[in-house]
Amino acid sequence: MSNIKPMAHNKIFLSIALTSLLTLSACSDNDTGSMPTPEPEPAPNPTQDYRVTVTNLTANQPMSPMALITHQTRFTPWVTGEAANLTLETLAESGDSAGFANLDGVDALVTGEAALAPGMKQSFDLTLTDSESSSFSLLTMLVNTNDAFAGVNSFSLAGLEVNMIKKFSSIAYDAGTEANSEAKGTIPGPADGGEGFNPIRDDVDRVYAHSGVISSDDGLSSSVLSASHRFDNPVLAISIERLR
């Protein structure tokens, strides 16, 4: 994760391809020379186009590749005060979001191609059909931490009309699955290059607002982080625009 390349723009399509059906009508004995008449093709489902833009507001906390999730209203990626599931724990400790694609209620997962560097911005275009998801979430890890993450938690797309923009700001959350030791070998980002996911849970085992980085410059002598890795809230600015 040390080679961080800002991504200017990703064109992403989430759509359901329609297969044309051709039904041949049976020919009678008196009409053997006539050609079968195909049934009309079904009309394509109307599409909805959205643009999601994310800005990293931190000074020295790269964000893992964005995980954009479209899902049903019953799904929520995290609940503050409750234990993180294994998929959230994996993302918060390593930046790996692949597990979200297999969760019940999730329709599609799209991930960014690169980490989002401090001060940089990324945009993603999404095309959905009317038959697809009604809600949207976004998650990313602050990679120079033990288990901090940020994002959008279950935003309903139903009320977003064409040309409307919804803006969010996200604080940093602590997955509560790994102690914030900041010790060498425990942080996957470029500040350390240590391990990512570890199945052992040695923290409070509930999601809560992250208390921030201490760093070696501020009295934690065993920390591999410096004062530059500290962050204030919010850590992300996010907007969702309905284009069509």
Rank of each mutant, 00 (worst) to 15 (best):
E195A: 15
N198F: 09
D205K: 11
F136S: 01
P118D: 05
S25L: 15
E178C: 14
I12V: 08
I4F: 02
P36V: 06
N45K: 15
A101S: 14
S135D: 12
S2H: 11
S216W: 12
T76K: 13
A114R: 01
M7H: 09
T129K: 12
N56G: 00
A172K: 02
A59W: 00
L22V: 12
D130H: 13
S181C: 07
Q122M: 03
L160E: 03
V213A: 08
T90W: 08
L160P: 01
D104C: 08
A115P: 03
D218M: 03
A17H: 11
F75L: 02
R242K: 09
T70H: 07
S97Y: 01
F13P: 13
G105P: 04
A26Y: 08
E82G: 04
A158H: 07
C27E: 14
V110Y: 12
D49Y: 09
D218C: 02
A158D: 09
L142F: 01
S135Q: 11
R242G: 00
P42T: 10
Q48N: 10
R201H: 08
G193D: 02
L243Q: 08
P118H: 01
N146L: 05
D104K: 11
R242Q: 04
A67P: 00
K5T: 14
G194Q: 05
D174Y: 10
R230G: 07
S135C: 13
N60K: 13
A43L: 09
S123N: 04
K11H: 10
T145P: 00
G194T: 01
G219K: 11
L116N: 06
Y173A: 03
P42Q: 10
P199Q: 02
L21S: 14
V152L: 05
T23K: 06
S94T: 05
E182T: 03
L24D: 11
S123M: 04
F155V: 06
A114H: 12
N3F: 12
A43C: 05
P62A: 12
M120H: 09
N56C: 00
M66Q: 03
K11G: 15
A101I: 04
D147R: 08
V207F: 03
L18D: 14
D174E: 07
N30A: 15
L142M: 05
I240G: 02
N30S: 15
E41D: 07
P234N: 00
T177I: 14
D147N: 12
G159Y: 09
L103S: 01
D31Q: 12
M164V: 13
A92P: 00
N102H: 12
F197L: 05
R74P: 03
G99C: 03
W78R: 02
S94Y: 03
K184T: 09
L21Y: 12
I187N: 01
A101G: 01
D192H: 08
S133A: 10
P65H: 06
L160H: 06
D96C: 13
A158M: 15
A43Y: 08
F136C: 04
N233Q: 11
D205E: 11
V207Q: 03
